[in-house]
Simulated assay, not measured.
Amino acid sequence: MLPAANRLTRSQDFGLVVRRGRRAGRPRLVVHVLLPSSARPRRADDGPPPSAQPTLDPSKVGFVVSKAVGNSVVRHRVSRRLRHLVRGRLAELPAGTCLVVRALAPAAEASSAELGEDLDAALRKVLR
């Protein structure tokens, strides 16, 4: 189980991460990451620079497992596996990072090891 402080719960937050974050796709899942303003490169349309203080907000994670993955039993199994995998990788994320993991239909037949490989590869891609 993820601590409450690390859960992404509001639909507006999910939408923001999916729209403005970086995306990396793998065969079984897609990862969307929105880095805190102090950790991501500045763009001209970002507005005024943030203060020099680094953010100490905890990283937040949300999961999207649609009906395309399977029935409710399968969807909950996939989300439990993903939640367990992400919990072990929270410390690797910069503080204040928002992460949305979207499971694709092939995730239903995937083992935890396969999901872990896809998750690691996608996180490496969006965090470099």
Rank of each mutant, 00 (worst) to 15 (best):
E109V: 14
S72M: 06
G21S: 11
G21T: 08
L119T: 07
A110V: 05
L115V: 14
M1F: 11
V18N: 08
R22N: 03
L90M: 07
V65G: 08
G96T: 02
S66R: 04
A95T: 13
R124G: 00
V74F: 01
R40H: 10
T55M: 13
A108F: 04
A105M: 06
R20F: 01
H76A: 09
L85W: 01
D13W: 15
R7Y: 03
V18W: 14
R20A: 07
A105P: 15
L99N: 10
S51H: 13
Q12W: 11
V86E: 01
F14Y: 02
V61H: 00
G62D: 09
T55Q: 08
V78N: 03
S72I: 05
L29V: 00
A107T: 03
L35M: 06
L2F: 08
P27V: 01
V64E: 05
N71P: 03
L82Q: 02
G116P: 06
R40M: 14
R10S: 04
R80K: 11
L29N: 01
S11T: 09
R89S: 05
F14L: 03
E92A: 12
S72P: 05
H84E: 11
S111T: 14
S59M: 12
V64G: 07
A103D: 06
V31E: 14
R77K: 12
L16C: 15
S51E: 15
S59I: 15
L2T: 15
A39Q: 15
P3K: 04
L56A: 12
Q53M: 15
P94Y: 02
R83P: 06
R23K: 14
V31Q: 12
S111K: 12
C98T: 13
R43W: 12
A44S: 09
L93F: 00
S51C: 09
A121L: 00
R28P: 03
R102Q: 10
D57L: 14
S79G: 15
L115A: 11
P54W: 04
P106D: 13
V69H: 01
A108V: 03
P27F: 01
L2K: 07
P50D: 05
N71Q: 05
R40N: 13
R43D: 13
R89V: 01
D45H: 10
L93R: 00
V69P: 00
P94K: 04
E92N: 10
V65A: 10
R20K: 06
S72Y: 01
R19F: 02
V18L: 11
E92F: 10
G47E: 07
L123I: 01
Q53A: 10
V101T: 05
G15L: 01
P94R: 04
V18P: 08
R124N: 00
P48T: 15
S72D: 04
V74R: 08
L35W: 01
G62Y: 09
T55S: 12
R7E: 09
G96R: 08
R26A: 09
L93T: 00
